[in-house]
């Protein structure tokens, strides 16, 4: 049994706005094991980013707030830990990189200064030692001429280079887990592949678990061991990458996979799931996906489905996999046969 290092348990993060309370994360449970790469997939606005920011306690507050649930990190619940404790954890045990490498580095300080800052916040080191470590980190993430880059400013680097610097910064204190919030979305395709390779390499060499947030199933196929599919603030499906890509169980995942272009099929038009993601609202009844689901039946609009466990540690939030229902249908089938 692999060691679980991060486990979310019924996490609820809500935003309190002028238009009422918005449950951006609505009961998310998931886990990340040691050294594992977990992909979190879903459309824009499904709560992926808010989930990751909740783990780091970086939700802008107000308006956001973790209302209930647990964030268990190595047996410690971060949801109610102090600001002081979070400062020790951030960047040291859990670190994070972001979608926009162009704006994620402070434009007024050199790369070296910003790397040293991250290192010295968590290690008692002299400036010289921290500089050496910063240099090692830049070399590790494959920055050419790392010595010069240390004294350069972010605007002198390309987007791909800046994302490498961000990764170097995030990895500088050997975190247990790296949360990557759409790290390749703002980069062009060749650079995307390089950054993914780098993350995979770090994952294997340093045994750092990675929680990769993305909307790109290609990225998931490339590096993830396991996938969590989110929809409207909830986890709708969970399983290994291979199984989910080959045999998606939840109608939403099926739709996502169906909408990927396939290299050996010529079609005039790409499939797309009808409708759009509904805005999260308080007190919604029934399955969130029911409105857009081709297989929806009456019960989907009346009751909330649970995450039903399936074979091979898979889970799916769909009544199609409700044991009770399955029994009923199986019995019915049996009746018909007899």
């Amino acid at each position: 049994m692999p060691e679980t290092i991060l486990e979310l348990n019924e996490l609820h993060t809500h935003f309190f706005t002028d238009n009422g309370e918005i449950p951006a994360v609505d009961g998310v449970s998931l886990s990340v094991n040691k050294g594992e790469v977990v992909g979190i997939v879903g459309e824009s606005g499904c709560g992926k980013s808010v989930t990751s920011l909740s783990i780091m306690q970086l939700i802008p507050q107000p308006p956001g707030k973790i209302v209930s649930g647990e964030i268990n990190f190595k047996g410690e619940n971060l949801a109610n830990s102090s600001n002081k404790r979070m400062k020790q954890i951030r960047g040291n045990e859990i670190s994070m990189i972001f979608q926009e490498p162009m704006t994620s580095l402070d434009p007024l300080f050199t790369i070296g200064n910003q790397l040293r800052e991250a290192i010295q916040l968590h290690n008692k080191m002299s400036k010289k030692e921290a500089s050496d470590r910063a240099l090692d980190m830049l070399e590790m993430v494959g920055i050419p001429r790392p010595k010069e880059v240390l004294s350069e400013y972010p605007h002198q680097l390309s987007g791909g280079m800046r994302q490498r610097v961000m990764i170097a910064m995030a990895m500088s204190c050997d975190p247990e887990i790296l949360i990557a919030d759409e790290p390749t979305t703002a980069l062009d395709v060749t650079i995307q592949a390089q950054i993914l390779d780098l993350m995979k390499k770090l994952n294997q060499e340093k045994d750092t678990a990675i929680m990769l947030i993305t909307h790109d199933l290609g990225v998931v196929a490339e590096i993830c061991d396991r996938v969590v599919v989110m929809y409207s603030g909830q986890v709708v499906e969970e399983g290994t990458t291979r199984e989910i890509l080959k045999d998606p169980k939840h109608p939403y995942s099926q739709g996502l996979i169906k909408s990927l272009p396939k290299i050996h099929e010529r079609e005039q038009k790409l499939y797309s799931i009808p409708g759009t993601v509904p805005k999260p609202k308080m007190g919604v009844k029934g399955c969130r996906f029911a409105q857009r689901c081709p297989m929806a039946f009456e019960r989907c609009f009346q009751e909330d489905p649970e995450l039903y466990p399936l074979e091979n540690n898979r889970r799916s939030r769909c009544f199609l996999y409700d044991d009770a229902k399955r029994e009923v249908t199986e019995n019915a089938n049996a009746d018909i046969r007899s």
Binding site: Q88, I89, R90, G91, E100, D106, M166, A170
Partner: peptide, 10 residues
């Protein structure tokens, strides 16, 4: 974004 990065560094 860069202020968020500084916070994420701890």
């Amino acid at each position: 974004d860069y202020i968020r990065t500084v916070k994420a560094k701890g």
